[in-house]
Design a protein around this nucleic acid. Structure first.
Length: 518
DNA sequence: CACCTAACTTAATCATAGT
DNA sequence: ACTATGATTAAGTTAGGTG
């Protein structure tokens, strides 16, 4: 079974798209992960997200780390007989991430992409994420499942199913050797900055953390901005107050209430022993990332012109990044083509412009958009009576995302679930949306300020501390937040790549203008 | 250059939404 | 119950960062 893959692999599927930039975990981050791993090698989504926030990395990265760690552990002790999954087993209550609902229109886009390339690289995935509004990690999973269930689908080419050879998909044509890395020159892609990295998971704001809750520093402004991938939205952060646990009844019971509402008392379900402490949390939010690189996989030129929109010479300077993040660059990019997005759509049978999709999904069109203030409220999700606010709908439909540190931050993810209107999770969505991104990420070496962690909050025990206390692991003198602080500091900015047209259209739809694009 | 390990893949399986 | 499909896991591979 498995063996098969290896050999052919060389052709590597991965080769082309280029992987996501390798994350280098800091010591303190490793310590935290390690500590938690000891307690529960099979953390559920809530724990992973929480951890992700604490560490300032994407939830998906946390998941991968646990996978690798389990493997490592296993390998080391050749005989795992003892423990494998039993331990974590009983985690009733939190386990998996909620199933992500993918709408038909989103599926369409994905399928299209799939036919073009079954092994999209990070850049392509991110691009898809932007287009669909689905978090990149979910897209990655989607492709995995798709490959497994649709061997060769499009291939009409009789004959072979070369499936796995990763190259199978596109490689066929090419000799391969070269594609292995990224395209040669054209966009330098990621190397320089961490381009693609954006945040996936958001660091929720820090408002008031309940006890153990980790606090995050909130980017300067009180208000966070959430940007939707395709659309740019500015959401006003519902002030922390809104989240106040005390009474704010966020109606949605099912919604995971941000830590604020949850009592820390609930501890993690899974756990065994020593008292786990992690409170359940989970505000889910998602953030989308920026249009980063273009890239493309050009491997399948056959199907399409596949315009690599990517060609945008994205400069790697921080400034550029920032601009890009804020959308400034993007929109006014001189480039003849807006490129990025356009690139992908070409293939779509009918250009499902995002806007169209949006409308379709939301089915609304007339509501008057709430003023910003209203938006804010929406954020607080006052109570979804059933009529989702325009903003809500939009957000939901677009799966808004908030992104954070544009430049370098490699983390983030979101637990997003998209849902079509009507779906019960609307509230969830809104909630998620309202969570503003908070913390910044790590990775910039230059800012001495703003630690990703709770640097100095004396009163709030960090997750690690809790764990340590509980498990008595104490190898790391982690008490000093200092370390972590080293680098982080980016402020959160949001980015929002959105096509001019869409943006425009959106504007049109907004309150005052009834007619969506002409 | 070797080693460690993040990132990625397949295959199997569990879980859930929709019928 | 059945089907479709998203999520998770194990096991193996690839490749980036470091010493």
């Amino acid at each position: 079974m498995a063996s098969s893959s290896s050999s052919s692999t060389s052709g590597g599927p991965i080769a082309r798209g280029s992987r996501r930039r390798r994350l280098v975990l800091k010591l303190s981050q490793k310590d935290t992960l390690q500590a938690l791993f000891q307690q529960n090698p099979y953390p559920g989504i809530a724990t992973r997200e929480r951890l992700a926030r604490e560490l300032g990395i994407a939830e998906s990265r946390v998941q991968v780390w646990f996978q690798n760690q389990r493997r490592r552990r296993l390998k080391q002790s050749r005989s795992p007989s003892a423990n494998m999954r039993q331990d974590g087993e009983g985690a009733p209550g939190e386990a998996r991430r909620k199933r992500t609902a993918i709408s038909p229109s989103q599926t369409r886009i994905l399928v299209q992409a799939f036919t073009r390339d079954r092994f999209p690289g990070i850049a392509a995935r991110e691009e898809l994420a932007r287009q669909t509004g689905i978090p990149e990690p979910r897209i990655q999973i989607w492709f995995q499942n798709r490959r497994a269930r649709h061997p060769q689908q499009s291939a009409r080419g009789p004959g072979n199913v070369r499936a796995r050879g990763p190259g199978g998909a596109s490689a066929t044509t090419a000799p391969a050797p070269e594609d292995r890395r990224a395209p040669p020159a054209v966009h330098s892609t990621s190397p320089p900055l961490g381009p693609s990295q954006t945040q996936e998971s958001m660091p929720p704001l820090a408002a008031a953390a309940p006890l153990g809750a980790p606090t995050f520093w909130v980017p300067g402004t009180a208000s966070g901005v959430c940007v939707g991938q395709p659309l740019m939205f500015f959401v006003i952060q519902p002030s922390p107050m809104a989240l106040q646990p005390s009474e704010k009844p966020p109606p949605p019971p099912q919604v995971a209430v941000p830590w604020a509402a949850c009592s820390p008392a609930d501890t993690a379900p899974w756990q065994p022993g020593p008292g786990a402490i992690l409170p359940p949390l989970q505000p889910e939010t998602h953030i989308r990332r920026r249009p980063e690189s273009p890239v493309a996989e050009g491997t399948a030129p056959l199907l399409e012109p596949q315009p690599h929109p990517p060609s945008l010479p994205r400069s790697t300077s921080l400034l550029d990044e920032l601009l890009a993040a804020t959308g400034i660059l993007e929109t006014q990019a001189p480039s003849p083509e807006p490129g990025a997005d356009a690139g992908v759509h070409p293939a779509l049978p009918d250009p499902p412009s995002f806007l169209d999709e949006l409308l379709e999904a939301t089915g609304l069109g007339s509501s008057q958009a709430p003023s910003p203030g209203a938006a804010a409220d929406a954020g607080a999700h006052p109570a979804l009576p059933g009529t989702p606010s325009f903003l809500g709908q939009l957000l939901e439909a677009t799966d808004i995302a908030a992104s954070q540190a544009p430049s370098l931050g490699p983390y983030a993810d979101a637990g997003a679930h998209l849902a079509l209107p009507g779906s019960p999770s609307l509230q969830d969505e809104l909630l998620a949306v309202t969570c503003i991104p908070g913390s910044p990420g790590p990775s910039l070496g230059s800012s001495p300020v703003i630690p990703g962690y709770h640097p100095a909050l004396p009163g709030s025990p960090s997750l690690l501390e809790e764990i340590m206390a509980a498990s008595s692991i104490q190898d790391t003198p982690w008490s000093s937040p200092r370390a972590a602080a080293d680098e982080e500091g980016v402020e959160a900015i949001l980015e929002a790549p959105l096509r001019e047209e869409d943006y425009q259209a959106l504007l049109d739809m907004l309150p005052g203008s009834p007619g969506p694009r002409a």
